[in-house]
């Protein structure tokens, strides 16, 4: 944990302008989000349907990686259980949707329920450190299939639930609508996160991560900050889970395996811990790497390889990125510009 924190702070320090003279003011998050929104809408008109579906999946992943990177990168709490929080959001959406068939309502309920789940897990998490925290969240990830089979009358066991959805307006193709929905949610989530971590809450998060004693002396309520960070992150995961339920029109424990939780952590580390742009990169990789692995697997002709290659590819990318750019992909531009300045 400690070296992850150091890496994260190493990458964030130059940007906050503590040791480098500030050259340019960073644009307000809202501007970046609006630009991103325009870009996504433009893309949905250019891309073919299957790419739009992949784009939508990226948007859903972006929600959860953004929340996780705030928790792990900025607050130093490692969670291996975000897959389970996504499952919470997904199942809540499915159950609400199948009862009332009202998507905004279902999303609202999904957010409420994951807030509650996040608060419960966060309360326990705030008392644990390092490997014990990882262990607790790991247990949460593992328990999902057992919960669904123990309460099979509600969750329908391994088979899961299908989600009743009203079709999108006639004029909008399904995949474009899905991309809009996912990115709309992702951009709102990320904007809120960006605004949140700019201000006092962001400073509290970092202070608690870097030195709890110092933070306490400065008057920061450690436990409250940690629980809040967990809740914020859980809500993001819940929204992502709900989006996945809409995309897949079904929920089942198989869609939220332990490997998903591990992939999420890997993705934010590769992308750059603590950076929302890093979370974006992570989301992009979560969609692209399996696709890449699959096409490589198909070319080698081994059918069995296809399903397993993604794990290997992810591991290799993690090692390479950590060697070449310890701050993750998001740190590469600033590393390059620093190199250029040094050589000048």
């Amino acid at each position: 944990m400690t070296d992850m924190q150091q890496k994260a702070s190493a990458s964030t320090v130059p940007e906050t302008g503590l040791n480098v003279p500030k050259r340019r003011r960073r644009p307000h998050p809202a501007l970046v989000i609006v630009a991103g929104g325009i870009l996504v809408v433009a893309l949905t008109y250019v891309l073919p349907p299957f790419r739009n579906y992949q784009l939508a999946t990226m948007g859903a992943y972006f929600c959860v990686t953004a929340g996780l990177t705030v928790l792990t990168g900025l607050n130093g709490q490692l969670s291996l259980g975000h897959g389970a929080l996504m499952a919470t959001g997904a199942y809540t959406l499915a159950l609400t949707q199948n009862r009332w068939v009202n998507l905004p309502l279902s999303f609202a309920v999904a957010v409420l329920v994951t807030t509650a789940a996040g608060a419960v897990i966060g309360l326990a998490a705030a008392r644990l450190r390092g490997p014990y925290l990882a262990g607790l969240t790991l247990a949460v990830a593992i328990v999902v299939p057992s919960v669904t089979s123990t309460f099979d009358e509600t969750f329908n066991s391994d088979q899961g639930l299908s989600v009743i959805l009203n079709p999108p307006p006639e004029t909008i193709p399904m995949e474009r609508w899905q991309a809009w929905l996912c990115w709309g949610a992702a951009l709102v989530v990320v904007l809120l996160l960006a605004l949140l971590i700019r201000g006092r809450f962001g400073r509290d998060l970092r202070a608690v991560r870097d030195d709890e004693t110092a933070a306490k002396l400065a008057g920061i309520n450690i436990a409250r900050t940690q629980v809040l960070a967990f809740v914020v992150s859980a809500v993001c995961a819940g929204v992502a889970g709900a989006l996945f339920a809409v995309l897949a029109q079904s929920v089942s424990p198989g869609a939220f395996p332990l490997t998903l939780s591990l992939f999420l952590v890997m993705a934010i580390v590769i992308g750059g811990l603590g950076s929302l742009f890093g979370a974006l990169w992570g989301a992009v990789l979560l969609v692209l790497l399996p696709t890449l692995a699959q096409s490589v697997g198909e070319q080698t002709g081994s059918q069995q390889l296809e399903g397993n290659l993604a794990l290997v590819v992810f591991g290799v990318v993690l090692v390479v990125v950590m060697l070449a750019a310890p701050g993750g992909l998001a740190s590469i531009p600033s590393r390059i510009s620093r190199l250029i300045r040094r050589n000048r």
């Binding site: 579906y53 995309l247 079904s250």
Partner: peptide, 20 residues
């Protein structure tokens, strides 16, 4: 296409087959 008996993967691979 391999979906690993995971409904989420089935969504992706079937879309790939049909749309792409």
């Amino acid at each position: 296409k391999d979906d690993g008996y995971n409904p989420a993967n089935t969504q992706t691979v079937v879309r790939e087959l049909v749309l792409q």
